[in-house]
């Protein structure tokens, strides 16, 4: 029995090492140059005293960080850097979009959350923004504070824990261990349901307007009347209800809907 268990443990450890080695296999030579250039340009922008030069260099830094993003696995720190450069360049649309993407990857990334709240506050007060979480949302905050992959991975670990408990219970005929093993099994089930809900939940795609001014219309035609008296500014967060190329029907946080050009927004995905 001991030999078998030792063999299984060695097998498990060996596979973990292999999986980590596979994750590290990405080439980073080309992205390092972009990253170094982005750091340098961002530093120059902060040191610049003339507004036009500052703006230009922040935009350049944003572009360089975006180049890095296209080469590596999406990660929250990088999207936060993109958002910060965009915010410095006074590009609220791309700043909010980048912070939203960062929080989608890592909902607990504090800098992205802080800057997103600040960027939303810079929008005109007439633009509705997504509201604060309610009591139930706080209670189930783990559901949204952990990304789907992590939840699935944690569920697998709980399943291993439950299996270990059941194995010991079977081997040593221990009722207490068996009963204790139901606890990780319940956690496994809860996490699995959460993952399934998020994967098949059918949430509408989210988007952020990036065009400077998007005229919201009452129908998908340039001749239809304007839905609002003012164009929607960049940074307005919307839900995409329908897409009829080149138009898209959007819904804002206050429930109002309108038609805009599909090229006006970028999806948060």
């Amino acid at each position: 029995m001991r030999k078998i268990l030792l063999t299984l443990l060695c097998f498990f450890y060996g596979f973990c090492e292999v999986s980590l080695a596979l994750d590290e296999g990405t080439s980073i030579d080309s992205t390092n140059e972009y990253l170094n250039a982005a750091f340098k340009v961002y530093g120059e922008a902060q040191a610049a005293t003339q507004r036009e030069i500052r703006m230009d260099k922040f935009r350049r830094a944003q572009h360089l960080f975006s180049n890095v993003e296209s080469e590596v696995e999406p990660n929250a720190p990088l999207w936060t850097n993109i958002g910060t450069a965009a915010l410095q360049a006074e590009d609220l649309g791309y700043a909010i979009l980048a912070y939203r993407k960062a929080l989608l990857i890592n909902p607990n990334y504090d800098q992205a959350r802080q800057n997103l709240i600040h960027a939303r506050a810079l929008l005109p007060s007439t633009v509705p923004t997504p509201g604060d979480d309610g009591v139930l949302d706080s209670f189930f905050s783990w559901h949204s504070s952990m990304k789907v992959d992590s939840q699935a991975g944690l569920a697998a670990l709980f399943f291993v824990l439950a299996a270990l408990g059941f194995a010991f219970a079977i081997h040593w005929r221990s009722g207490m261990i068996r009963n204790l093993s139901f606890f990780p099994l319940l956690l496994w089930g809860g996490l699995l349901i959460s993952v399934l809900i998020q994967l098949t939940g059918g949430n509408r795609p989210q988007g952020v307007l990036v065009a400077n001014e998007s005229i919201a219309r009452a129908a998908d035609s340039v001749n239809s009347p304007m839905r609002f008296s003012q164009p929607l500014p960049a940074g307005t967060e919307v839900e995409i209800l329908d897409v009829r190329d080149p138009w898209a029907k959007i819904s804002m946080a206050n429930g109002r809907d309108a038609w805009i050009f599909a090229s006006s927004y970028e999806l948060v995905e």
Partner: peptide
Amino acid sequence: LLGQQESWLGGIVQ
């Protein structure tokens, strides 16, 4: 930033 220190938790291999 280059995604090298991402957690192995959640990978399909894991």
